[in-house]
Computed example of a mutant assay.
Amino acid sequence: MTQSNQDNRGAKMQLQGKVAVVTGAGSGIGRAVAQALAQRGCHLALADRNQEGLAETAALPELNSVKVSLHTLDVADRDAVAAFPQTVLAHHDRIDLLVNNAGVALAGSFEQVSETDFDWVMAINFHGVVRMTRAFLPLLHRSDDARIVNISSLFGLISPPGQSAYSASKFAVRGFSNALRHELADSRVGVTVVHPGGIATSIARNARVSADIPQAQMQERLANSQKMLRMPPPKAADIIVRGIEKRSARVLVGSDAVVMSWLERLFPVRYWNLLARRAKL
């Protein structure tokens, strides 16, 4: 499902012949978004820390019909991000779309999570988005029709216990995206913020875990998280890319994201009490 408050740029965004930079493209939503963009004739600069994952993405048949460049990149590396636009321009003659998808997860309450781990999440999930945007915005301004797409989360809409670091990073992405959209309203660069619900990726399995969480408790949390991750990444990616084409200001991916968005709006303080009460029924 998509909730879209379109910007005022008019007709559908045409992706044929455009060039997109996609971070976190070695797996999950990033890989699926690359497929969906390639199916629409969009050329790709794909970035990830995982070279093997990038190679697997590049080998997908959907990418055979477009120009693809692969780049090993850690979005938490300030210098690498600053140099990245020129690297991309060495392979492509333009940049029209930036998809800030790279992200990590961290399990544990605020008191369980170390300051180092909290900063690690923020460095990738939030500061990576900001740095990539700062690096590529001058090139996006050169395009006749450009867009920045920032992947937040369901936990950028609601704030469950045990997710203080991750939720903080995703709320930060949401706030940054909304303010940036207003600042760029009179330019040719639009901004979309995406809130995926339960997407069947490996993010929960690969989450960093606080050493203070008992193993049995962690296994239970992981099992519960996996049950919630139901939507296949290609379906999520199609919703996201259709949102890009529609110039949507916000894209809610999945019925869970839509329901939680409305619940948080209706009960901005008490929504978690209502959810916890329902879970006990």
Score class of each variant (00 low, 15 high):
Gly53Val: 07
Ala257Ser: 15
Val88Glu: 00
Ala179Met: 11
Leu46Trp: 07
Thr116Gly: 01
Ala257Cys: 07
Val19Met: 08
Gln51Met: 10
Lys18Pro: 12
Pro138Trp: 14
Thr87Ile: 10
His91Trp: 04
Ser187Tyr: 06
Ala47Asp: 05
Gln112Trp: 00
Ile213His: 00
Ala249Tyr: 12
Met228Thr: 15
Lys12Cys: 13
Lys67Ala: 11
Leu180Val: 07
Pro214Asp: 04
Gly24Leu: 05
Val99Asn: 02
Gln215Lys: 07
Leu229Val: 03
Ser210Gln: 08
Ala168Thr: 15
Leu89Pro: 13
Phe267Ala: 08
Leu140Arg: 11
Gly53Phe: 02
Asn125Gln: 11
Leu180Lys: 10
Arg49Gln: 11
Asp144Met: 01
Arg134His: 15
Ala82Val: 13
Val22Cys: 08
Val75Trp: 06
Lys280Thr: 14
Ala179Tyr: 05
His71Ile: 06
Leu54Ile: 10
Val258Met: 07
Asn101Thr: 02
Leu63Trp: 05
Ala59Tyr: 05
Lys170Glu: 07
Thr192Val: 11
Gln163Glu: 14
Gly254Pro: 10
Ser114Phe: 05
Ala80Met: 08
Pro160Tyr: 01
Phe118Asn: 09
Asp212Pro: 01
Gly198Glu: 13
Pro268Asp: 08
Gln226Gly: 00
Gly26Leu: 01
Ser109Lys: 11
Arg174Pro: 06
Asp186His: 12
Asp96Ala: 03
Glu115Trp: 12
Gly53Asn: 13
Gln35Phe: 01
Pro160Ile: 11
Ala237Cys: 14
Glu183Trp: 05
Arg277Asp: 04
Leu106Cys: 15
Arg134Trp: 04
Asp238Val: 05
Gly162Met: 03
Glu62Ser: 13
Met13Glu: 03
Glu52Gly: 13
Pro268Thr: 06
His195Ile: 09
Ser27Ile: 00
Ala105Phe: 09
Met231Phe: 10
Gly30Leu: 03
Leu89Ser: 02
Gln112Arg: 00
Ser153Trp: 12
Ala107Thr: 10
Gly10Leu: 10
Ala80Thr: 02
Leu154Thr: 09
Val189Trp: 09
Ser114Gln: 09
Gly30Glu: 09
Gln226Trp: 00
Arg230Trp: 02
Phe118Leu: 15
Leu139Trp: 06
Asp77Ala: 12
Glu52Lys: 15
Ala207Asp: 01
Val253Phe: 06
Thr133His: 01
Ala38Lys: 03
Leu281Tyr: 03
